[in-house]
Amino acid sequence: MTKPLAVPVDEDHVRSRRRSIKDTMLGLAFLGPSAVIFTAFFFYPLYRLVWLGLHQQNRTGTRERWVGFSQYADTLTSADFLDGVRISATYVLYTVPLGLVLGVLLAVVADRKLRGIKVFQTIFASTVASSVAVASVIFFVLINPQVGYFGDVSFLSLSDPGSALRGVALSSVWQNLGLTFIIVLAGLQAIPAEINEAATLDGYGPFRRFWRITIPLISPSLMFLVVVLTVFAFQAYAQVDILTGGGPAGATETLVWKIFSDKEPSQYGEGAVMASGLFVITLGVTLAQFRILEKRVHYGA
């Protein structure tokens, strides 16, 4: 994160003190609205999350008792939670590498000077216009077992527990294609033309130039995308809600699905622990990917 701007000290001490009181009042007034929202909907819930994790409530939520860390221990080792983690992790594997490769392919092909290239670039970016819910309806049309165009393709079949997650994942891959394309293309366009010219003069063929020059230079964009797409995958909910409802046989119950389907007060505690688990996982994934990739990533130009 960037350091706040350093400000030179005013020479007129008295005036500066009067100004600093005024600045403080104004500063608090300006930060006030955001601070209220953040307190009510970010910091207080964080406290509540811990509190809920340490307590168990009755079915109506009118009474609760302290259960300490046992609820954490029980929930985090429960088959339900581990299943959700496994399904969400598999979802990451299905969506991130494929999505990234396709996005890079589209961006590389569309990064050239041709008449009408803007039209193709808009087409490739077009899936950003689709929300997760819209993408889910689109893939409902394509792969729903009863009415889908590819409804009988067994590799993506939503009615088979072995393949349903792949079908759902494909909708995410398609939906994220536009975002991936836009970010990779921006990365490619930031590469100075001289670098590629110099590489060509040095006898680099197109393949070598792609692996040795292009990929290292766009690696910050790629790293950003790996993190963002992974976090998206861990947050998958609408796709499941619209395409499979968690089925068949619970095969598409992602972590968020499990957290959210525990809606009764008696299950708030469990849900809160799972949500803390999700928080730790996404935070951990983000930090780990930054650390691993940072060593290989070329920040330059």
């Binding site: 994160m1 953040f38 009510a40 909907f41 970010f42 910091f43 207080y44 819930p45 964080l46 509540r48 999350l49 809920l52 976090v231 947050q235 909910y237 968020v256 957290i259 959210f260 525990d262 708030y268 849900g271 809160a272 949500a275 803390s276 999700l278 928080f279 996404t282 935070l283």
Partner: peptide
């Protein structure tokens, strides 16, 4: 900036409660 680390999914249950 710390609020950026907290996705909606994590705080969902307490927020729905609120």
């Amino acid at each position: 900036m710390a609020t950026l680390m907290l996705p909606l999914e994590v705080t969902l249950i307490p927020n729905v409660d609120t």
